[in-house]
């Protein structure tokens, strides 16, 4: 697994750049990850990230957009506003999780 350095944080990532070690993630790193893809985190973003992390801990897989919306109570429309263009992958990246594998 490659190691990459993001603003002084050394993290293990896969070939695309998604984090591979859950324990390396914290709130501060989330801010750094968000900045890499042009996002500035607000409380709204963080609420979604918290759901994704908790859900991953229970299920062992990253929630798809539909599940993230149903579980976090944030509408699909708002998820597109918070994480524009590619919400499912962006949410997963900033939450330090693998990208979702589900189709829907």
């Amino acid at each position: 697994m490659p190691v990459t350095t993001l603003e002084g944080h050394e993290v293990h990532v896969d070939a695309e750049g998604f984090l591979t070690d859950l324990s390396e993630w914290d709130d501060e790193l989330a801010t750094v990850l968000a900045a890499q893809i042009g996002l500035t985190l607000t409380d709204e973003h963080r609420a979604v990230l918290t759901f994704l992390r908790d859900d991953f801990a229970q299920r062992g897989e990253t929630a798809t957009l539909r599940r993230a919306s149903a579980g976090s109570g944030v509408s699909v429309k708002d998820l597109f506003r918070l994480f524009p263009q590619k919400p499912a992958k962006k949410m997963a990246y900033v939450a330090g999780l693998p990208k979702p594998v589900g189709c829907v």
């Binding site: 990459t4 350095t5 750049g17 890499q36 893809i37 042009g38 263009q85 990246y93």
Partner: peptide
């Protein structure tokens, strides 16, 4: 000094096609 480029998924604002 680590000068290798950071590995980041191509999800940024420039990714729009």
């Amino acid at each position: 000094t680590d000068t290798s480029p950071a590995v980041v998924p191509q999800l940024g604002p420039d990714a729009a096609s």
